[in-house]
Simulated assay, not measured.
Amino acid sequence: MLPSSNLLPASLTTLFSPALLSEIKAVARPHQFRQGDVLIEPGQPMAYIPIVLSGSIKILRPDGDSEVLLYYLRATDACALSVSSLLTNEQRSIRAIADEPTQVLMIPARQAQEWLGQFADWRQFIFQTYQKRFDDLLDTFDSVAFSQLDERLVAYLNRKAALVGGRHLYLTHDEIARDLNTSREGISRLLKQLERRGQVLLARNKISLLTPV
Rank of each mutant, 00 (worst) to 15 (best):
L69D: 04
K206P: 09
R110K: 06
P212N: 13
D142N: 08
L20H: 04
R61M: 15
F119L: 11
R152T: 06
R196E: 09
I57M: 14
N181I: 06
L153N: 06
A112Y: 00
R167K: 15
W122R: 07
A28E: 03
S93D: 07
S4P: 08
S143F: 10
S82N: 02
W122M: 03
G55L: 03
P212Y: 14
L81I: 10
A203N: 08
K206T: 05
L194R: 03
S54V: 02
I176D: 02
F134R: 10
V83W: 02
P108F: 01
L7A: 09
L15W: 02
T129I: 05
L15G: 03
L12M: 12
R167T: 11
D121G: 14
W115H: 09
I107T: 03
T211D: 12
P101E: 10
Q199Y: 14
I59K: 00
S183H: 07
L15V: 06
Q44Y: 00
A47V: 04
T102V: 11
L105N: 04
K206I: 05
E90W: 05
D139V: 08
A75G: 03
E100Q: 10
D135I: 05
L39E: 00
P62H: 08
A162F: 06
D139T: 07
R178K: 09
K25Q: 06
R110L: 04
L20V: 10
L137I: 11
L194K: 05
Q193E: 12
R74T: 06
N6T: 11
A177T: 09
P50V: 01
A112S: 15
E195T: 04
L153I: 14
L190R: 13
A112K: 03
D99P: 00
H173Y: 15
A109F: 02
S4D: 12
L210H: 07
A10T: 14
R196A: 14
F125P: 12
L201M: 15
F127V: 14
Q199T: 09
C79Y: 01
E114D: 10
S84W: 10
R167D: 10
I59L: 07
T14N: 12
I59M: 07
R95I: 13
E90V: 04
V213D: 12
E67S: 15
I207P: 03
S22K: 08
A28M: 06
N6L: 11
S5Y: 12
E90C: 13
G165S: 07
L7T: 12
T211Y: 12
Q131N: 14
I49C: 05
Y170M: 09
L209D: 10
L20Q: 06
T102I: 07
W122H: 07
L7P: 02
D174R: 15
R189Y: 08
A112H: 02
Q128D: 15
I59N: 00
L202P: 04
S56P: 02
Y170G: 08
I57S: 01
Q91P: 01
Y71Q: 05
W115Y: 13
L86Q: 00
T129H: 01
V52K: 00
H168I: 15
D150T: 14
G36R: 05
A47K: 02
Q91V: 03
K206S: 13
H173M: 09
T172F: 06
R123W: 07
L21C: 09
E67K: 10
T140E: 12
S82M: 02
R184N: 10
P101S: 13
R178I: 05
Q124D: 14
I94Q: 00
L20W: 11
L15Q: 08
F119T: 08
L163P: 01
L137K: 05
M46P: 00
A78H: 01
